[in-house]
Design a protein around this nucleic acid. Structure first.
Length: 700
DNA sequence: TATGCGTAGT
């Protein structure tokens, strides 16, 4: 009797633990980490399952260190505990830690091996993954095969994925889909269609993958055609197509589809919301957000980042305070907003307050410092960052390059273990920005030799290097590469080609590229106008401008810089004055310093120095060195020593470190017979020293 | 543990 009572109590206690564990898992899965932790701490009895559940919950919420502490403190560990800890390390990219655990565990099951394989493939370590896969003792399970296949496919090794699929004794639907995903993720739809046709089994996931591939490549007609033939579309099929329409900006069709959906989940609402947000349709976005039956942290983050993008930082902050989730994505979005507005302290406050930070948080803060010109702070944070990813390194490279510190940019670039196309492109375009075009092209050669990852943007960058060097033949080679890579109609590379040919003096070829482009944007028109201008074809530049007007393309500030300098070089004074007036009157564009510099040049060249000087004095904005430089140039040509001295003094005020200004003023003073002034200048040069020119010499 | 949807960073 007593024994039965004890047994009964034990059973009751066991089932209480069982129920507790179920609740724990439920809380963790629904994102309520705090509640889960409270429940765990208050549980009167816990078993290994409770610990394992808490461990996974912590890991899922990014608290790897807390998970590890719990793992170390567990009274008993089973294989599931070890596997959970390995999985946590794998999720956070801690390959070495995962491996250490794997080696230390007392017994391994299929689960452990599969985890280790996928941990390696996620880190791009396919050789190590395959070694682990081959070492699996006994019969390999389907999941092991699938992990390896998926690893190959997601790393672009389609052939290896297929080979393994064929070697498999009994591939299941996941095996087939894992291969397919490799093709659709890369947008290789021709091969994807071929493979899809060969598949002996298909499920809705297979169809959805194809759908996603078409959406990814922007082929919405193919996507909607395919959608209609899906035997049993599920909510993900609908969401995928909806996302396609939203991303293409076809918001009307998207909404129609959304309204027709037989079943909606949070993702459907989030996609629709994102569609409105992307097009800045804030009213509709607000309305939809209010109507949403369920909102998760992604819904809130989308809305907050919309407010951030609209520059409504206070509203975004208010919304963040109201948000019932603790989402570091939302906080990162607001941080980004503050940084774009150069409110560094507010951003840093959020950053410091984050309990969990992922790579994106760190990178946002680092790139924010870079954006605000605070390179030292960026570097400090970069050095503190625990798991730097490719973006972190690339951000620092671009940051130093943009700041003219190429030596530091290159040194970071060289320290990288792995580089992607962005790394190479950053260092190449950095050289170009700093006028080191030969070095840029040398790095292109290294890139092709080491990594063969040049893309259209590499070619476009190198083209502008050729343009700056007026290296026509090399430029033509890049033109060929662009044609071969299929990006020729694209406006970015097209524009680079126009500038390149124009700068090499081949204005007819520039015009030909312009005419062959699928669509010309404002940059294309500006490049062409600038091309004619710099080649001394002032009246042709004006005709292009008229052509642009006739095509209803609205000129911008850059257009006017081109057209004014065209007038100036061609001596078309009256036309220049007309354009300058038309700029504000007809296009409501406020002239900036560059426009004034062109005008000063224009007037100055024809000897109208007084008018030029009056124009400067009447400027609404502060004249910069370019303006005074133009004035000085004109004064020297027309030998006006009095105005030349004024201009040179202003230049020295604006650029106290530039030696050439002092030399100029000193010469002018000497010529004017003002020996005292000339001597003063020579002393000043010595006192203030010489600033190193930008580029490689600019770093310390 | 292996396949498919939505947010934040170069």
């Amino acid at each position: 009797m007593a024994a039965a009572k004890v047994t009964g109590l034990a059973v009751a206690a066991e089932s209480a633990v069982f129920r507790g564990n179920q609740e724990l898992t439920r809380l963790a899965r629904s994102g309520q980490l705090a509640a889960a932790r409270r429940l765990f701490d208050e549980m009167p009895r816990r078993n290994t399952v409770s610990y394992n559940a808490m461990l996974s919950a912590l890991a899922r919420h990014g608290r790897l260190a807390d998970a590890r502490r719990l793992f170390d403190d567990m009274p008993r560990r089973n294989t599931v505990s070890w596997n959970a800890m390995i999985s946590a390390c794998s999720d956070h990219g801690r390959v070495a830690d995962a491996r250490k655990l794997f080696d230390a565990m007392p017994a391994r099951d299929n689960f452990s091996w599969t985890l280790m394989v996928s941990c390696y493939t996620r880190a791009g370590e396919l050789t190590l993954a395959r070694e682990a896969f081959d070492l699996i003792p006994g019969e390999k399970c389907t999941a092991c095969y699938n992990a390896m296949i998926s690893g190959y496919a997601k790393n672009g090794r389609f052939d290896d994925a297929v080979t393994l699929l064929q070697d498999m004794p009994a591939p299941d639907i996941v095996s087939w889909n894992s291969v397919l995903v490799g093709l659709t993720r890369d947008g290789k739809m021709v091969r994807a269609v071929q493979f899809f046709d060969e598949m002996t089994q298909r499920d809705t996931v297979s169809w959805n993958l194809m759908l996603e591939g078409y959406v990814r490549t922007g082929d919405l007609d193919a996507a909607s055609g395919l959608f209609k033939s899906i035997p049993s579309p599920n909510v993900i099929s609908w969401v995928t197509l909806l996302n396609g329409y939203c991303r293409a900006g076809r918001i009307g069709e998207a909404r129609e589809l959304f309204d027709r959906m037989p079943e909606r989940n949070v993702a459907s609402w989030n996609v629709m919301l994102g569609g409105y947000v992307r097009l800045s349709h804030m009213e509709e976005a607000y309305k939809l957000f209010k109507e949403m039956p369920d909102k998760n942290s992604i819904s809130w983050t989308t809305m907050i980042s919309a407010l951030v993008r609209a520059g409504k930082l206070q509203e975004a902050q208010d919304m963040l305070n109201k948000m019932p989730f603790d989402s570091f994505a939302a906080k990162t979005a607001l941080m980004h907003g503050y940084l774009q507005s150069k409110m560094v302290d507010e951003a840093r406050h959020i950053f410091d307050g984050l309990e969990v930070r992922d790579a994106v948080c760190w990178n946002t803060m680092i790139s924010g410092y870079v954006h605000c010109g605070m390179l030292d702070e960026a570097m400090m944070l970069f050095q503190q960052m625990p798991n730097k990813d490719m973006v972190s390194w690339n951000t620092m490279i671009a940051g130093y390059a943009h700041d003219g510190q190429m030596r530091k940019a290159v040194s970071i670039f060289r320290k990288m273990n792995q580089r992607n196309a962005v790394s190479w492109n950053s260092v190449i375009s950095g050289f170009i920005q700093n006028g080191l075009c030969v070095e840029a092209l040398q790095h292109f050669v290294l890139m092709r030799r080491d990594a063969k990852m040049a893309d259209w943007s590499t070619y476009a960058c190198c083209l502008s290097a050729c343009a700056n060097l007026a290296a026509l033949q090399v430029g033509r080679q890049f033109h060929t590469l662009l044609v071969r890579s299929g990006y020729i109609g694209d406006s970015f590379s097209g524009n680079a080609l126009i500038s390149a040919y124009a700068k090499c003096g081949r204005i007819l070829e520039a015009r030909q590229v312009f005419d062959e482009m699928v669509s010309q944007d404002i940059v294309s028109w500006n490049a062409l106008i600038d091309g004619y201008a710099s080649n001394g074809h002032g009246s042709d530049a004006i005709s292009v401008f008229r052509e642009m007007e006739a095509n209803n393309v609205r000129p911008d500030e850059v257009t006017f810089v081109g057209i004014l300098s065209a007038c100036s070089r061609a001596g078309l004074i009256d036309e220049g004055l007309d354009f300058f007036n038309s700029m504000t009157k007809d296009y409501s564009l406020q002239p900036v310093a560059e426009h004034y510099a062109c005008m000063v040049d224009l007037l100055g060249r024809s000897g109208r120095l007084r008018e030029a000087f009056e124009l400067i004095q009447g400027m609404q904005i502060q004249p910069n060195a370019g303006v005074w430089g133009a004035m000085l140039g004109a004064c020297q040509v027309h030998k006006n020593k009095e105005l030349a001295q004024v201009a040179a003094k202003k230049l020295i005020e604006l650029e106290p470190h530039k030696t050439s200004n002092y030399v100029l003023l000193s010469n002018i003073s000497t010529e004017a017979g003002r020996w005292d002034e000339a001597e003063k200048m020579r002393v000043l040069i010595k006192e203030r020293g010489v600033r190193k020119p930008p580029g490689l010499a600019g770093s310390t």
